[in-house]
Write a protein that binds this DNA or RNA. Sequence first.
RNA 1: GCCGGAUUAGCACAGUGGUAGUGCAGCGGUUUUGUAAACCGAAGGUCGGGGGUUCGAAUCCCUCAUCCGGCACCA
Length: 648
Amino acid sequence: MAQISLTFPDGNVRSYPAGTTSAEVAASIAPGLAKKAISATVDGRHFDLQWPLDADAAIRINTMADEAAALELIRHDLAHIMARAVQEIWPEVKVTIGPVIQNGWYYDFDRKEPFTPEDLGAIEKRMKEIINRRDPVTTELWDRERAIRYYEANNEPYKVELVQAIPADQSIRMYWHGHWQDLCRGPHLQNTGQVPADAFKLMSVAGAYWRGDSTKPMLQRIYGLAFKNRDDLKAHLTMIEEAAKRDHRKLGREMELFHLQEEAPGMVFWHPNGWSIWRALEDYMRRRLRGAGYKEIRTPQVVDRILWEKSGHWDNYRENMFIVEVDEEGAKEKRINALKPMNCPCHVQVYNQGLKSYRDLPLRLAEFGSCHRYESSGSMHGLMRVRGFTQDDAHIFCTEDQIEAECAGFIALLSSVYRDLGFETFDIKLSTRPEVRIGTDADWDRTEGALKGAIEHLGLPYQINPGDGAFYGPKLDFKLTDAIGREWQCGTFQVDAQLPDRLGAEYIGEDGAKHRPYMLHRAILGSFERFIGILIENYAGKMPFWLAPRQVVVASIVSDADAYVEEITAALRARGIRAEADTRNEKINYKVREHSVGKVPVLLAIGQKEVAERTVSVRRLGDTRTETLALDDYLAAAVSEATPPDLR
RNA sequence: GCCGGAUUAGCACAGUGGUAGUGCAGCGGUUUUGUAAACCGAAGGUCGGGGGUUCGAAUCCCUCAUCCGGCACCA
C-alpha cells in the first residue's frame, strides 16, 4: 500500500499508509490526544477526523483548546442539531442551508408559518436533548445520482437543487447526526455530546431569500449564537446590551441631536445640539481640505434629466432618483429634473468651464454635497442609511501619471483625519478589474499599479478584492474600527476613466493636443449623517470636548451665585466655548445628574465659596472628583481644550 | 421591495370587547440647596391614518403609512 508523509507542527515527519484518517494519526501519537482530538488542519484546510488522508501534507491535530477550529465545529454542529430539532418537531419543514457566521450560525427553513419566539424556546429545548443523546456523527461520500434520488425520495427539493448545482464529477459528502442526515461539506465533531449545551442561544427569526435572490421564495431563517463555554456566551450577550446602549438613535433623542418623522422618511431634522456637532465637523473638514490643496465649490440640487442621461445615471439608477417636475398651469416648458443623487456630473460641469491646461492639474474640487437617493423602504436605518445626505465629496482631475501621488496624498489625509476623530486603525481594501469593464488591460495594469504603489509606498497593509472594482476603474475602500470593535466602511477612492469621457472633460497637454483627464472620486467621512452616527456610537455620546454640542454648563448652587454664573458663561462664550448657564431653582445634585445624563463634558458648580474666591469647581463627565480652579485659569484651559486637533 | 414584529401623553411603558393608566419630563407653588433624582399641586390623549364588524373597539378584521429585526438593494 502506498505511503504518505505527514509533517507535524514540531517539524517531525512520519509515514502512514494512504487512506489513514486523522483520528488514526492522533491515536498513533498518544491515546490522550486521540481522546481530545476534534479535527485536523491539513495543509491549512480544516479536516474531519474521519476523512482519509491520501497525500503528503502538513498536519496539525486540533483539540477544544484550538479556539478557531473548536468554534467552527461547535457552530456547524449546532446548525445541524437545530435543523434536526426543527424536523423532529415539525416533520413537514424543508431544510436548506445552515452556515457558520460570526459568533454563531443560522439555518434557513421552508415552512408556511413563521417561527414564533415560543417556537424558538421549544427548538432550543429539543436541541439540548439531542446534545444529551450523544449521537455519533458519521459521514460518507455518495455519488450525485444517489444523492439526488435520496433527496427526491425524502421530499427535500432544496437539497435536490443544491446537489444539482454541484459539478457532476464531484462526489457528494453526506453527514449523519444519529439518524438525521444532511448534505454538508463538513468537517464536524464526532458526536453531538461534544457541543456545550449551555453556551448557545437562539436569537431571532427573520425572512431570507432562497440563495440570497429576491426573485426566489422567502425562507424562515433562525439565527443562533454559540461559544465554547457559558461565560463567553454571557460576555457576548453583555456586549450586545452595551452596543444597544450606545445606539445613535436612542442617544440622538436623549441628547436632543436630531429627529426623523413620518412626513420625511430618511431625511434628518437636525436640532441645535446635533447641528453643532455637524458644524464643528464640517469646519474641521473644510480646514483639512483647504490645507490639502482642495478648492471648495457648490453645485445645484435640482438638475435637468438631460445631464443625468449624459452621465448614464438616468438609464441605470432612475428608479432610485427623486424626480422633480414643475407643475404650473400654463408653464411654457415642462422640464423633468432630478434631485442630484451624486455630485460628480456637476463637478465635471465646473471643470468644463474654461479651457484647462495640463498646468491646472491636478485640480481638486471639493463640495459638502447634499444628495438625495430614493432608498428602498426596508433599507433605512437611523442616520446610517438615509435618503437625504451630505457627502464630504471631492473629485480630483488629473493625468494618469498623477494618480499615484494623489492617492498617496489622499491616504495620508484620511489617516490623519481618522486619528483626529478618534479612530486609530483602519483597513484598506483594493478592488481590482471586474469581468465586465472598459479600457485595455494595459490601462488597468497602470491604474491598479498606481493605487498599489501609493499604499505600498506608505507602508500600509491592504487586502485585494479581485474583480470587485467598478467597470470604469479600480477603487480603494477604507474601513475604520470603532471603540467596541465594529467596522465601518467610510472612506473611498475610485479611479474613473469613463465619466470625463461621457461628459467631455479635456485639458490641453504639453504637446498642445487635447487629452482626457482621469477623475478620482474620493470621500473620507462618506456622509456627514452616517459619520456622525458612527461618532455618537463610538463615543457612546460622550463626544470629545471640541465636538461636544454643549461643552460647559455653569450651574448655580444658590441663587446668590446667579450673577457670577452669568459672568462666567459670558466669558466662556466670548472665547468661543459653547457654554450654558443653569440657574434653575434646583439642587446641585439634580443638575449634576441631568447634565451627566445629557453627556455635557464639563460642569462648573458655583456656590457661595466660588463667588467669594472668584473660582470655579470643575466636574468632568464620568469623574466624581472635582477640582477648584481660579476663573482665569479655567478659561485658559477651556480655550486650549476646545481647540480642534488640527489647530493645536 | 420581501418576511416577521411594533405604533397608547414630550420620553419610557401598562392596559385582550364595557368610564384610557403609571413613572419621568413639562407647568404652578414651596424650598436656597455643595457634586447623579427635594416636596406639594393642577394639567396633559381623535390610543399612527382611513375603513369595517359590534349595542359598544386602544383591544377583533381590512387597508395605508412609519418604525424595529433580518433579507434583498446601496451608482
